[in-house]
Amino acid sequence: MNTKSWNSVLAAFVVSALSGGFSGGCLDDKVLDLVVTGETSADFPVNETSSSWTKVAGLDVGQAIRDILNDNGYDDSDIKSAHMTSVHYGVSSFSQDHDWDISGSIQVTYNGNEQPLMSYVSQSVQGALGKKIPATLHSQGVDLINQALADFVSGQNPVLTFTINNLGTAPTPTALDPMIFDWRAWLAIQVILNEEVTVPDPF
C-alpha cells in the first residue's frame, strides 16, 4: 500500500471513529427530580362592626396543583411528592381614614380535622397593605396541609378550608365606623416531578 492509500485508510478510520462513536454514544437517558413552585391564594373580604369575627374561605388544593403544573407545561401523571413551603398574608385593599390593629389566628380544616396554621398579633391593617408578610407557622396546620397534598398525589381531590378567627381589634369597629378591607392569604406549594430527559454526557 502506498503513502496515499495509507492516508485515505487512516482518514476513513478516524472519520468513522469520531462521527459514529461521538454521535452515537454521548446521549444518556436519565430520570431527574424536577421542582415546580407555585402559589395559590384565598381572599377574605372584611366588613365588620365588632372586634371579634370569623371569615371562611375554601381552597381546592387539587385544582391549585393542576393549575401550577399546567402553567409550567406538566400534568399530574409524573408527580413524585408535594409539600407546602410557606404562607404569607397581607391586605389587598384598604382605603379608610385610620388604621386598625388586629389579632387572631387562621385555622385550616381538612376532612373534618381543624388545626391552627398561624397567628397574628397587633397587625396593622395599613401596615399590611400591598405586602406579603411571612407567617410563623404551626406544625399541626402544616401537617394537615401536607396530608391533603399527599392525598392529591395518591389520586384524591382534597379541598381545604381556611378560617380566620379574629379575636381583637383596636380601635373597636362600630356601625358608624366599620372596619373594611380585603385580606389575602397565599399558600406556596412545591411539587416534585420525575422528569425523564435525554442529555449529552459524552465522556
Partner: peptide, 22 residues
C-alpha cells in the same frame, strides 16, 4: 428537601447527573 418553621419544607431541584461536557 429541607424542613423549616412549623415543619414546612423547601425542595432544591436535582441536577442533570452529568459526568462530562462535550
Amino acid at each position: 428537601t429541607v424542613s423549616g418553621g412549623g415543619g414546612a419544607q423547601f425542595a432544591f431541584p436535582g441536577g442533570l447527573d452529568l459526568n462530562s461536557f462535550g
